[in-house]
Each structure stands twice: as structure tokens, then as C-alpha cells.
Amino acid sequence: MAGRERELSSLGELLDATVRGSGGCVVVDGPFGIGKTHLLKVTGLEAAARGLTVVAGRASVTDQPVPVHLLVNFLRHAMPGEAAVEQLAVPGANPFWLIDRVGDLVEVAARRRPLVVALDDAQRIDDVSALALRGLVPRLASSPVLWLLARRPVAAGSIAQHAVDWLAEHVAVRVRLREPGEEAVADLCAGLLGARPDASVLRWAARCGGNPKVMENVFSAFIKAGQMIIVDGAASVVSDGLPDGVLTAVHGLLEEMPPPLRRLLAAAGRLGHTFPADRVTGLLDGPAADVSAAIDEAVRVGLLRRDGAELTFAHQVVGEALRHAAYPRPERAEPATAPAVGDVADGPAPRGRLGPPHSP
């Protein structure tokens, strides 16, 4: 959580307000790997320390609207055995009736058990889930329910994202996470490594673009390769080349991306750090409009930067790994697999606090 003191302070104040009986909503925006999931985890832990109930999930395509699924889990915990809660599980229930009924019950239950609802990857929600949020967030604003929604930048136009945009503009506190500054990057290196970073570590952090997730994966690869040395409390990288594990790490990072974006980046990796957009278009099959849409997506999520007709990898190490290693050639097609609703994704143990916990 290096460099996130202001965000942590704001979220701590909102948690305290929820303890006192107020509702609210936060939309956390930020590019790939910037720390949105980690911020939700830390906030969830702090909410629990304050005595709040926390339900957390990731958006995906499911049989039920995601926020409703999370709230039904809350109601089963807060109102065990209640017939009204059991009726919510009736197969084939009208989703709009379900949303309305869940809102009624949460208003009652949250007065006894103040609630934090954390929804990660909100860029993936479907239209019904988004409409559920659009209705439930304003409706529960006077109840002790705090919504935490994290998402990557997305293209405007869908019903789902119009609904989240409306919340961000009219109801929610908007938190925009950006790449940390130099001092915060040094602190982040120290936190990841448990030691003071020397110039060699900071050079690699710069090659990672200061992106926390990319840094974590690259440093882990150096450690596994025995190329990260700690002497007298200072960490050093003893290689200027990419360890073999970086390719695996980059492959793992890109596996989280939609297939069209992975195909684009795999092709772009063969062109160098900076390259003309039309060259990568020529390497990929399919309509130029589809490739252009994938490029726009890569720029939005923070993997590529655009300067006129030129594209540049935002994280130098990602481009290096794709260029120098035998990354698989662009795929033709594969089914997209969305993560199931459940706990917030695994990650490193959260660091940083929002301040001393308070009893409700």
C-alpha cells in the first residue's frame, strides 16, 4: 500500500461512517496491476476489525446478478432460518422481484449488522448485475451498507458500464489509482523484498513501469533464480538479463486478459518496445476493426501507450519478455473462461492500515 495513504485515509473515514450507521459507495478505477484488488483486501480486513460484516466477490457471468448473490449470502448469515430469506433461493425467480426483495431485507438486516460489499472486476458485470447495482446502491444509501467496486477502464457503451459510470458520477466516491511515484516505488520494493532496494533493484522497478503486480512477479522470478541477493539489509539484483521465470510470470499475467488482447500482445512482442500500430495489425488475422478494438483495450487497461501512430509497451519488462523469450505464437481462438463469484482473488498478504479499528 505504498503511496496510497490518501486513499487509505478516505476509505477509513467511510468505514467509520458505516459503523455509525451511514451508507456509501466507492468506485475504484485503475489500470492493470495497479493494486485495486489489494486495496479492496486491506479495506475488507479493516472493516472486519471494526466489527463490520464483509462479503466479497468478483464479477463474472452467473445465473444470478452478482450483487444479489453476495447480499443473499449476507442475509443467510444475518437472518439464519428466516422464511423470507429462504424464498430468495427459489429457482426461476424473476430477477427484478429478487432485486427488490433483497433490498427490503438488507435494509432490515443491515441495521443489526452493518455491511461492506466488495466487488472486484466490476468491468465484467453483466447488464442485470449492473441494473441491480444501479437500483440497490441509491436505495440502501440511508442504511449502513458500504459498497466497494473495483474495475479496470472499459469502453463506454454497454448498459452495464453506463450503470457503473452513473454511480461513479452521481452517488459514489471515485478513487483513481495511478502508478506510484519514485519514493512510493522504493517503499513498495522494500515491502515486497523485506529489504532496502539498491540502484539495481530500482532500475528493474523502472523497467516494470512501477506497476506493483509486474514488480511482484518479476522480483519473485529473480528470487527463484537466485539472482536477488540481500546483504546488510540491502537488496540487489545480480543480473541485467531476464531470468527464465519472468517469461512464466508474464505468461501468467497475460492469461488474465481476454483472448483478443493476449493475441495482440503476443504479436506486438515480436516488434520491439515501440512499433507502428499498422505493423501489429498486419501480423494478426481477422478484420482490422477487431485489431483496432484490441489495441484500444490494451491502451485503456494500461499495457500499451499510444503516441500518434506509434505504440509502446507501458512496462518495458513485459515487452522484453515477449520479445526475447519463446512466447507462444498468437492463438486463433479459444473460449473465454470467467472466474466464478467467490472470495476476492488470492494475492500477497495485505500491508498497510487505515488507522486504529473502532468498535461499533
Rank of each mutant, 00 (worst) to 15 (best):
H251D: 15
A268Q: 02
H273K: 08
L254V: 10
V218T: 12
T248N: 13
G272C: 08
G241V: 12
S239H: 10
F219V: 03
L254W: 08
S239C: 06
M228A: 15
R262C: 01
L242M: 08
G269Q: 01
H251Q: 14
V246D: 08
D278L: 03
F222L: 07
V250Q: 06
S236W: 00
L242Y: 08
A266Y: 13
D244W: 01
L247F: 13
E256F: 00
E256T: 14
E255N: 12
P276K: 03
S239M: 02
G245K: 04
D278N: 02
A221C: 12
V214L: 05
M215N: 09
D278H: 12
G252I: 00
K224G: 01
E256D: 15
F222M: 09
S220E: 14
A266G: 14
E256W: 02
K224V: 14
E256S: 11
I223T: 13
P260W: 08
L253C: 07
S236Q: 13
T274E: 15
V237A: 11
A267W: 05
G269A: 03
A267R: 04
I230A: 13
S236K: 10
F219D: 05
A266M: 02
L253W: 11
R262E: 10
G252W: 06
A235T: 09
R262V: 14
V237Q: 00
A266T: 07
E216Y: 06
R270Y: 00
A277T: 08
A249K: 04
G241M: 03
F275G: 05
G241I: 01
A234P: 00
R263T: 06
G245N: 11
G233N: 02
G245E: 11
R263G: 14
I223F: 09
V250H: 10
I223E: 15
L247K: 07
G241C: 01
V238G: 07
D240N: 14
S236N: 01
V250P: 10
V238A: 12
A266P: 01
T248A: 15
G233F: 03
R279N: 03
A249W: 11
V246R: 05
L253R: 03
A268T: 04
G245Q: 07
A235I: 03
F219H: 04
T248Y: 07
A225H: 09
D240F: 04
P259N: 01
E256G: 09
T248F: 06
V231Q: 13
L254H: 06
R263M: 06
A249D: 11
A249E: 10
